[in-house]
Design a protein around this nucleic acid. Structure first.
Lengths: 154, 154
DNA sequence: TATGTAAATGAAAGTCATTTTCATTATCTC
DNA sequence: GAGATAATGAAAATGACTTTCATTTACATA
């Protein structure tokens, strides 16, 4: 009896199709990056994605990861998250649902937050002559685990 | 009859006092950086600030600008704005009033936005076990001037 | 007002994430 | 299957920012 297919595989197919439709070629490297990205728990840096994707395609170069991530972002399949340190994190857009991030300043965990309340700010921008096309909102703080640890340390 | 003093000068004095109180020494370079920063129309990068401060103190090094900006941020006299690509802009905290930014993707102009509506997000974070201590919100788009230019170009 | 000391400076060198170059390889169209 | 051209990877380049270290300077103290 075959093991059931991993739940992300059908999505992988769809993403590859979207890439191909956009004029990109499908390579083993790109599949590896996509699968690595799908397997990450939260938004991650290029190095981390490289490390994981190498388990699938060992000779994968970091440069290719950067290029693939760039293409994914350009085609709307992935998006970036900017943390305080200036490094860029990437995450797949599973569902295209708009969301923001909660970043733990202690352990670096990144949680999704589906709520968004920038409507009034966009209007305020419009009143100032701006056409707002995008926004970026990150909340920083401490997750439950880290707060507990801190309390124990005291 | 003497010309009236520039309006930012008394503030300069206060800022220097705050720096000194925090254990820093007052140097011609730091005065130049502070005055340059006060004269910038909006949040600017270290290079721009360096260029302007050099008009006051020509032998000023870029390294000193970075160091001074760092100290100003640490002492709460200035704050940073993160651009889309991770580059850092600096601005004085005139009044300490909390605000966000409108960043023009075409000319790089940064406008202030006094509105803030992250309260609901903080609550959503709390519901997820997070203690939110800070946030960062930037709106990206096109300012009136750049939109007009774009229209002309067509 | 002199002086010692630690902070500040600037030039050059170093980081480090990300990008570019370019020769080679591989995909996909015909 | 062949050819065009996109993709790859290694190495070098970039660019914003930081560190190092010898020299200068501010400012507390004598």
């Amino acid at each position: 009896m075959p093991r059931s297919r991993a739940p992300s595989e059908p999505r992988l197919e769809g993403r590859l199709r979207r890439l191909r439709t956009a004029g990109h070629r499908i390579t083993a490297q790109r599949k590896a990056v996509l699968r690595a990205l799908a397997g990450m728990g939260c938004a991650c840096g290029a190095e981390d994605i490289h490390a994981r994707a190498r388990r699938i395609y060992p000779r994968l170069g970091l440069v290719t990861v950067y290029r693939t991530l760039g293409a994914l972002v350009r085609e709307g399949l992935a998006q970036t998250v900017q943390l305080d340190d200036g490094r860029i994190r990437y995450e797949l857009r599973d569902d295209g649902r708009h969301h923001h991030h909660l970043v733990c300043l202690s352990c670096g965990a990144i949680a999704r937050l589906e709520t968004c309340a920038v409507g009034p700010l966009q209007q305020a921008g419009r009143r100032r002559g701006f056409t707002v096309t995008a926004h970026r909102l990150e909340l920083f703080g401490y997750c439950g685990d880290c707060r507990s640890l801190e309390r124990e340390a005291r």
